[in-house]
Simulated scan of single mutants.
Amino acid sequence: MSISRTDIADFSYFLAIARHGSFRKAALEIGVSPSALSHSLRGLEERLGVRLLNRTNRSVTLTSAGEELREAISDPFARIDQARDALNRFRDTPTGRIRLNVAADAAALLLSPVIPVFMERYPDVEVDIVASNRMVDVVASGFDAGIRYGGTVPEDMIAQRLSPDIRWIVAAAPAYLERFGTPQDPKELKEHRCLGVRLGDDRIYRWEFMGRDGEEFDIAVPGQITVDESRSMVSIAIGGGGLMYGPEPVVAPFIANGQLQTVLDDWATNGPGFQIYYPSRRQVPTGLRLLIELVREMAPLGL
């Protein structure tokens, strides 16, 4: 049986659904409606004469036949993608589409200043940015790369630094400090209202400090409110909700205009800066390589 162009398109749709385990997410990646995607897969299953997917209201999983098909066609389609991207070097203007899963702070601090310039230089390269602090498997989720604080980058990935180390500080609104006092030692935080930090893996972050002896230590601070995103935390802190702990570049504008005030400056510590990471077994797409080069060239946070 020969393979038609319709089969090839439907195979690529099938691989997207297999990656995401969801028609909705696969449809977002491809740029079609979930109903159109479902229709295409039903047509593929009818032509092949086997069921490839188990569908329920809550999940989409591969059948044994689906698993076998995915194993058989994943590498050929990956090689086609790599070959198509390699041809970009022969073009005057690179083309393509890159998908990034990015920590919210990185989206605001690193990419926001760079993307307008990237658009002007490379108008035919599409960039799809998902800004989220939740940790995901970038490969399984269909992303070309992720950007995270260096300490959270998966060890099996190739990583490139995009910023210097970042200083983490404690800050609060002047009105809060007038009402509850200014802590002089991290131990005093247990007597304060602190805004908890939820990490991308759902753990509650223990605030880290540098001791007088140069040794780092951490404290589980008390708090009624827990937030998983820096800018929301800043807004709550400005409103007098409590002491916040966050990256200095996020907080700096609000310190400069007097809405926030730092405390415990002598105890502040530095953490790994932002890194972009991607799987070592894949060729780096041209668009991704160009974006990395531009971020390093413009260095919004220094480098």
Rank of each mutant, 00 (worst) to 15 (best):
3 I>S: 03
6 T>A: 12
10 D>Y: 05
13 Y>R: 15
17 I>W: 06
18 A>E: 11
19 R>I: 00
26 A>R: 08
27 A>K: 04
28 L>M: 09
31 G>A: 04
35 S>F: 15
36 A>I: 01
37 L>I: 07
43 G>R: 15
45 E>N: 13
46 E>Y: 06
50 V>S: 07
50 V>W: 06
58 R>M: 06
64 S>Y: 00
64 S>D: 13
66 G>A: 11
66 G>I: 09
73 I>M: 00
73 I>D: 00
76 P>I: 00
79 R>K: 13
82 Q>E: 12
83 A>R: 10
84 R>E: 14
91 R>M: 14
91 R>A: 14
92 D>H: 08
94 P>I: 05
100 L>G: 08
102 V>K: 06
102 V>H: 03
103 A>E: 07
106 A>E: 08
107 A>H: 11
108 A>V: 12
108 A>K: 14
110 L>G: 04
111 L>I: 10
111 L>V: 13
113 P>Q: 01
116 P>S: 07
117 V>Q: 07
123 P>G: 09
125 V>P: 05
128 D>C: 14
133 N>T: 12
133 N>L: 08
137 D>Q: 08
139 V>T: 06
140 A>C: 05
142 G>I: 04
143 F>W: 05
149 Y>I: 00
150 G>Q: 03
154 P>W: 07
160 Q>P: 01
165 D>E: 09
167 R>P: 01
167 R>V: 09
169 I>P: 04
170 V>R: 01
171 A>K: 02
174 P>S: 01
174 P>Y: 01
175 A>M: 05
176 Y>N: 02
179 R>F: 01
186 P>F: 03
187 K>I: 10
193 R>Q: 01
199 L>Q: 15
202 D>Q: 12
206 R>G: 12
207 W>P: 12
211 G>P: 06
213 D>S: 14
220 A>L: 08
226 T>H: 11
228 D>P: 06
230 S>Y: 06
232 S>P: 02
242 G>M: 07
242 G>K: 04
242 G>S: 04
243 L>F: 02
246 G>Y: 03
249 P>R: 03
253 P>D: 08
254 F>D: 14
265 D>Y: 00
266 D>T: 11
268 A>G: 02
274 F>S: 04
275 Q>E: 09
278 Y>T: 07
278 Y>A: 06
278 Y>C: 05
283 Q>M: 05
291 L>Y: 09
291 L>E: 09
293 E>V: 00
293 E>D: 14
293 E>N: 08
296 R>N: 14
296 R>P: 09
302 G>T: 07
